[in-house]
Design a protein around this nucleic acid. Structure first.
Lengths: 140, 140
DNA sequence: TGACAAATGCGACTAATTCGCATTAACAAG
DNA sequence: CTTGTTAATGCGAATTAGTCGCATTTGTCA
């Protein structure tokens, strides 16, 4: 899922390009987040990152996610009734659906939804900064 | 904005129809929520309701919102970084947009977004239980 | 009217996230 | 390299939205 080129060095470069200081903690956190296929919470990230670098603290994971979100490198998924989850900003845009039975988070491929929102928002004289969509659904 | 018929008695009936006990607290809370044009948080509701009935507690406002949401009478709007807000379940469906400058919550009329989501979800073998969309946007 | 389940107020509690502060370390300039 | 500046870190305390336990009250329905 992750290209062989996306190793630690690339993430370091990615941080630098965004004008962020490259600390070992940030590099570890980003590495873990990039290697993960699901959408981890801060707690998930914290635990996995500790296996790689036991100097990171939860506070730093929170701060790093916040910083990366502002830099547009990471997307935060706000859940209805559970801690937020994160993903690397996807190249292929998509939305998310929560399976109410299992709690699974399913990706909805395609950009239709975002496009429609953009269109509709511009009709009201706005342009979208970000959108937070939670679709709760059940298998048919 | 609120029809003259929607007085306290109607709300009492609405609760009864939903199979819920009609307590004075619930009647007061629903009255306040119905008379409000904006989208109040629990804190807002609590304060306004106290002016009408000083026996209500915050806990009851939380519990009432939860009960009414499950009954499909109220819609909860989950915010990114602020307490949840509520509205009476609208007869004319719409989504919401938060002006990131002012914090204002703007209603987006129309059902296009919900329809698209339903279509897209069914392609994945799901049917939507509920969806909350909050678009964060900036005036052009 | 009485019985019983459900709802309430209160305050204690939980869980997610943020913050203050002293310390450390990244980076740019020399 | 060294160094000065400034941002980032760890820690634990603080904050905040929301929930819970429990004793008491109160709708509802027979």
């Amino acid at each position: 899922m992750v290209s062989a080129l996306n190793n630690g060095l690339d993430y370091r470069q990615m941080l630098r390009d965004a004008g962020l200081r490259v600390t070992p903690q940030r590099a570890s956190i980003v590495t873990i987040l990039s290697e993960t296929d699901d959408h981890p919470s801060v707690e998930d990230l914290y635990e996995k990152t500790r296996t790689l670098d036991d100097t990171v603290s939860v506070a730093t994971v929170y701060r790093t996610m916040s910083v990366l979100e502002n830099a547009g490198l990471v997307r935060k998924l706000v859940m209805d009734d559970a801690p937020a989850r994160y993903e690397m900003m996807p190249q292929t845009d998509h939305d998310h659906l929560v399976d109410v039975e299992s709690g699974d988070l399913v990706e909805i491929p395609g950009t239709e939804i975002a496009e429609l929102m953009g269109r509709v928002a511009s009709e009201l004289g706005y342009h979208i900064v970000s959108h937070h969509t939670v679709i709760r659904a059940r298998k048919v």
